Amino acid sequence: MGMSVTISPALEHEAESILKLQYLCYQSEAELYGDYSIEPLTQTLDELRAELATGYVLVARLGDEVIGSVRARVEEDGSAAIGKLIVHPRMRRHGLGGRLLKAIEARLAAERQATRYRLFTGHRSAQNLRLYRSLGYRPVGTAPAGRGLDLVTMEKEAAPSATDSGGALAASA
C-alpha cells in the first residue's frame, strides 16, 4: 500500500531536513549557471531556523520524510514574496511543486490577506518558468544577478475572496 503526500506547516525539528533537501535540489540550478555560491547552497541552519520562526514555511511529507518545501513572507503592502520552492529530484514531475505553490498561496490569502504573489527564478530555468506560467504567474521584470544569471521576477494577483464586502458568500458560476 502506498503512502499519500501531505502538505502542512514545517515543524521546528524539520529545519535540518529542509536544509539538506534544499542543498540537494539547488545542485541542478548551480550547475545550470556554473555558480555553486548561490544563496540556497550557502544558507546556514541558523538562517533557516530564523525563516521558520518569522515566515511561512510549508513542507510536503511522504510518511515522515520531507520531500518538498516552499517559503513565503507577506510585505506590508499585501504582496507575498514566495521562495525556495523545492521538490526532491525523485519526486519531480508529479505535480508536487504546483501543489506546494497553491497551498502557500491559499494560506497567505486566508491568514494574511495577500493581494499579490511574487517569486523569481533564473532566466535559464525552463521547467520553473513553465510551472509558474501554468499557475498564472507572468514575468514583470528581469535583473542581472551576476555570473551569467538574470533573475526573472514573476507575479500574479491573488484570487478574489470567497466573500463579498457584506460577508456573504459570493455567487459561484
Rank of each mutant, 00 (worst) to 15 (best):
P9S: 05
A10T: 08
E14Y: 01
E16S: 15
S17C: 05
K20V: 12
L21D: 01
L24H: 00
Q27D: 05
S28F: 02
E29A: 15
A30F: 07
Y33R: 09
Y33F: 12
Y33L: 13
G34E: 00
Y36M: 04
E39Y: 04
T42Q: 10
T42H: 07
Q43K: 15
T44K: 05
R49H: 07
A50E: 01
T54S: 12
V57L: 10
L58M: 07
L58H: 09
V59Q: 04
A60V: 07
R61Q: 12
E65C: 01
E65V: 15
V66M: 02
V70P: 02
R71L: 12
R71S: 15
R73A: 11
E75R: 14
E75W: 03
E76G: 11
G78S: 03
A80L: 04
L85Y: 08
V87M: 08
R90V: 13
R90T: 14
G95E: 06
G95N: 00
L96V: 06
G97D: 02
L101P: 07
L101H: 03
K102V: 05
A103E: 04
A103K: 04
I104K: 01
A106L: 10
L108I: 11
L108F: 05
L108G: 08
A109L: 01
A110L: 05
E111R: 13
R112V: 00
Q113M: 12
A114Y: 06
R116Q: 11
Y117W: 14
L119D: 06
F120I: 09
T121V: 10
T121C: 14
H123I: 02
S125C: 13
Q127C: 00
N128R: 07
L129G: 02
Y132P: 04
Y132S: 00
R133Y: 03
S134C: 08
L135K: 05
L135D: 08
G136N: 05
Y137V: 12
R138K: 13
P139I: 13
V140A: 14
A145C: 03
A145K: 14
G146A: 11
L149Q: 09
T153L: 12
M154F: 07
E157A: 15
A158C: 03
P160S: 02
T163N: 04
G167P: 05
L169T: 10
A170T: 15
A171S: 14
S172N: 01
